[in-house]
Design a protein around this nucleic acid. Structure first.
Length: 402
DNA sequence: AAGTGACCTGG
DNA sequence: CAGGTCACT
């Protein structure tokens, strides 16, 4: 069976793939020619977008070739940032759904597919370059493609009507109204809490290019499921159990994690002591305040990282991570409403979150990500203002990150 | 409670 | 110094 593109209708105002996947929420999507590729829900995806549709294809499943990593074994370095893939759309790899090891997650997704509210965004399958239909069905009677669609709907949270939210935020906030037109379609992903948490533990006092590399090395070293295609290896994110093992801190230090190596090791062990990954998933059922308090007990997790996890994988739509970047935005664009202060204390941190929640409402965290993205250096070219001289000066070939 | 410094590494 | 956290005045 050949892989092929499928698509569903979706406007760029509802979801801008490029912005959403590159605005610092997730660190593992790779820009490849004509598409974005990455691992999600046990599958290796390629995604792209037209003016009217999101296009997607699954090119493999992690776990097809289980190769448990052994501590001490040297992993061969692969530049998955720039996969060498033929433009040829047909890939001969068979999808072996009967061998799919990720049945637990799959079941969860199917359940969500059955129960999710579908009236907001209607999904209709469009076959663009298909050669044959996917006929494999699960016990629940779903085709592989039914599952793919539910995975994407869940990950991109397509039941949330983003254009309505933008409208509301614009009405409530003049500054948002001024900035947002060049940054439409930025929505919160609903990430896997494990990947989200450990990735953002790596983010402390660190920059994006390095975080991406660290997450990549974390996967190379501790992922238990992977899939190789055209010389590129795609990894499932490591399990908490794998990260809780003996000697993890030492190995991660050697891999350049610095003091975050201890954070990762201790946090993994703490989670295992609480009952494993299910403990983390269960934070979704708590209130924002409760979930944040639990997260802040973890090593290497302060207010900012806790808010990132609450917002990006625990469904706390009002959580607002206040980092130095947001701090700058506040002092530059909202200082008239909030007294300008010198340092970011616990008190100020809370005041800023409350301030934005009061303005933007229950989805304040989503709104925050729009302004955050609009402030990223790499997106400055999107701004219509002609004063791009400061940016042009810096436009060296610094395309090191994905 | 606000302020200060160390902590890993690399651009 | 960089999209922080932790320990300690």
């Amino acid at each position: 069976m050949a892989t092929f593109w499928r698509a569903f209708p979706c406007s760029k105002a509802e979801l801008d793939l490029g912005l959403t996947l590159a605005c610092g929420q997730s660190f593992r999507w790779a820009m490849v020619p004509g598409a974005i590729s990455g691992v999600l829900a046990g599958r290796v995806w390629r995604l792209s977008q037209t003016d009217t549709h999101i296009r997607y294809q699954v090119i493999g499943h992690v776990g097809d070739k289980p190769t448990p990593s052994r501590p001490g074994r040297k992993n061969q370095k692969r530049k998955s940032n720039t996969p060498i893939e033929p433009n040829n759309e047909t890939v001969q790899k068979k999808i072996k759904s009967e061998k799919n090891v990720d049945t637990k997650k799959q079941t969860e997704m199917m359940t969500q597919a059955m129960t999710s509210n579908t009236e907001g965004t209607k999904i209709s399958k469009i076959k663009t370059e298909d050669t044959e239909e996917v006929t494999l069905k699960t016990e629940a009677g779903l085709t592989e493609d039914d599952i793919c669609i539910s995975v994407l709907r869940d990950y991109f949270q397509l039941d949330v009507k983003l254009t309505d939210l933008y409208e509301q935020w614009c009405k409530a906030d003049p500054h948002f109204k001024q900035v947002s037109p060049n940054f439409t379609g930025i929505r919160m992903l609903r990430q896997d809490p494990v990947e989200n948490l450990f990735s953002f533990i790596c983010s402390s006092n660190n920059h994006i290019s390095r975080i991406s590399g660290m997450v990549e090395r974390l996967c190379e070293a501790y992922s238990t499921q992977q899939y190789e295609l055209y010389g590129v290896t795609y990894y499932a994110f490591p399990t908490v159990s794998a990260l809780a093992g003996k000697g993890v801190e030492e190995r991660l230090r050697k891999l350049g994690f610095g003091y975050r190596a201890r954070y990762i090791s201790e946090t993994a062990q703490y989670i295992m002591k609480q009952g494993g990954e299910s403990w983390l998933y269960n934070l979704r059922t708590l209130t924002y305040e409760e979930a944040k308090a639990e997260l802040m007990k973890l090593s290497g997790v302060g207010a900012k990282v806790a808010d990132c996890v609450c917002l990006m994988s625990l469904d706390k739509t009002g959580a607002i991570p206040v980092d130095t970047h947001v701090w700058q935005i506040v002092n530059r664009d909202y200082k008239h409403k909030l007294g300008t202060t010198k340092t970011l204390t616990d008190k100020t941190y809370k005041e800023i979150g409350d301030f934005f929640r009061q303005i933007w409402g229950p989805y304040a965290g989503w709104a925050h990500s729009v302004l955050f993205a609009a402030d990223l250096r790499r997106f400055q070219e999107r701004k219509t203002s002609p004063e791009k001289k400061a940016v042009a000066k810096k436009s060296v070939k610094k395309k090191k990150s994905r």
